[in-house]
């Protein structure tokens, strides 16, 4: 029973990470499409008003939504000098410390970003030209941070391998 619950949880976490990664990928294609359309339309003196705003928002979504995936494939750069010098037990202890620190940092960041989103909401901040509300973007980054926390927990439980093969 418990095994089944764990397995369902694992699968849905992986699905969520993939889902976010797909959004990130689509955002990158959108950035290309908007920029190229803008450049072509500019020749006819009909550029896309607010392309600047759209590209910035798409860029932000692509980086934010890529965060859980990058964490899941162990894509972040780390200096593993100490890791290689330690004994097996030492490595296990270091691993727990490292992943625990990562979780703490991501939780802090997520909580702060929610507060930041609330501040933007209260202040009613919008993008420069199209006046699109901006408050939801910190929330998206925060959700990605929480997903990255779950991913890090998963890696902590299954030491020594990445959660998703790159």
């Amino acid at each position: 029973m418990l095994k089944k619950v764990v397995s369902i949880y694992d699968h849905s976490l992986k699905a969520a990470v993939f889902f976010l990664a797909v959004i990130a990928a689509i955002s990158i294609l959108a950035m290309i499409a908007i920029t190229c359309a803008d450049v072509v339309m500019r020749i006819f003196r009909r550029p896309i008003l607010g392309s600047f705003d759209m590209i910035r928002i798409a860029g932000m979504i692509s980086i934010a939504c890529a965060l859980p995936y990058t964490t899941a494939v162990k894509g972040h750069v780390a200096i593993e000098f100490l890791h290689h010098k330690l004994s097996r037990i030492g490595r296990a202890v270091l691993d727990v410390f490292v992943h625990f620190s990562i979780i703490v940092m991501f939780v802090f960041l997520a909580v702060r970003l929610i507060a930041y989103g609330q501040a933007l909401h209260k202040a009613g901040e919008v993008s420069a030209t199209l006046q699109i509300p901006l408050f939801w973007i910190p929330y998206v980054i925060a959700i990605s941070c929480f997903a990255a926390v779950l991913v890090t927990l998963h890696i902590l439980m299954h030491p020594g391998k990445e959660m998703i093969k790159p």
Partner: peptide, 9 residues
């Protein structure tokens, strides 16, 4: 997928 990983990193 490689692109989003690298740019996020």
């Amino acid at each position: 997928f490689e692109t989003i990983r690298t740019s996020c990193m």
